[in-house]
């Protein structure tokens, strides 16, 4: 029993790490521009798919180069999204921007469908497929890559937002656009950076998990949903909350799949999310908002 639970925990943390990265991407864009970007999951898909495409075949790039290329491509997509879809709609209502990002995600999926078709692709494992024994549980080396990669990225983001001028500037944009402008922050560029970063995080998540979960043109949908759930669970606008939310969601899903029913694992995840919201309407680590009148 204990071994089994250990196994579920390991799986949960692996899956949760991906959710955490996608959730972090949500939080970054939300922080910088108050937009919930429903095409966040598409970044993951594009990252994974382009890495596969770049490394495929005899003439393909080595894995590391393909990964870098894929991240760059995805960043470009993210910045283009900001520049050509979000920026022109400045001042639109929340729902309108939500629909724009949904439109963008359908568009990106459509492009992926054109380029790659409906097939499933996988990236080779980074360092072999020999499972590693931990107690009586096993873990794929790739899962360690996912966990380690996610941890490094999260710490990097944490450092970026708390200790670098650029990071702080991005947060300032969301707090007060005019003030940010006055102190000489170029809000437009900050937003581009935020979308680029968020896309890069998504892409890296996509590349890290591509060897385990395969990717296809529509893998982004579910991941996007999970990332949004993670960000909400942690409290919208709190990047580390989103990370915690992602890990928690991964663990809940893996434990309920193992112990209760795999068919209902997503439902259980959402039920717990709803229950959390009923008792904490601003998520686990979000600040309660009071309407001041």
């Amino acid at each position: 029993m204990f071994d089994q639970i250990l196994q579920f925990l390991l799986t949960g943390i692996t899956v949760g790490s991906t959710y955490a990265l996608v959730g972090l991407g949500f939080a970054i864009i939300y922080n910088a521009s108050d937009v919930v970007n429903f095409s966040q999951g598409e970044f993951v898909m594009i990252g994974g798919m382009s890495a596969v495409a770049l490394s495929a075949g005899d003439t393909g790039l080595p894995l590391w180069a393909a990964a870098i290329g894929a991240v760059l491509i995805t960043m470009l997509v993210g910045m283009a999204l900001q520049r050509f879809a979000i920026a022109p709609a400045r001042g639109a209502s929340v729902v309108t921007t939500i629909i724009i990002t949904i439109g963008a995600s359908i568009f990106l999926r459509g492009v992926a469908l054109l380029v790659w078709g409906k097939d499933l692709f996988a990236l080779p494992h980074f360092s072999g497929e020999e499972p590693i024994q931990i107690g009586n549980a096993t873990i794929l080396p790739q899962s360690l890559w996912v966990m380690g990669g996610a941890a490094a990225l999260v710490m990097g983001a944490q450092y970026f937002f708390n200790h670098t001028t650029l990071g702080k500037a991005i947060l300032a944009c969301s707090c007060n656009k005019t003030a940010a402008h006055l102190v000489g922050i170029n809000v437009g560029i900050m937003l581009l950076v935020a979308y680029g970063m968020s896309a890069a995080l998504g892409a890296m998540a996509g590349i890290l998990v591509a060897p385990i979960t395969f990717s296809s043109y529509d893998t982004g949908v579910m991941l996007g949903l999970k990332g949004f759930s993670a960000a909400i669970l942690g409290g919208m606008g709190n990047p580390m909350g989103a990370v915690a939310g992602g890990l928690l969601l991964g663990l809940i899903e893996s434990l309920s799949a193992g112990l209760i029913s795999s068919g209902y694992k997503d439902a259980i995840g959402f039920i717990i999310l709803l229950l959390v919201l009923f008792f904490r309407p601003s998520g686990l680590f979000g600040k309660a908002s009071v309407d001041r009148v």
Binding site: I99, I102, A104, G110, L113
Partner: peptide, 17 residues
């Protein structure tokens, strides 16, 4: 089809919010 659908959706919301 999918791509055009997404594009139209985006375009309409951007230009007619």
């Amino acid at each position: 089809e999918v791509m055009i659908f997404g594009g139209i959706l985006m375009g309409m919301m951007i230009f007619l919010p």
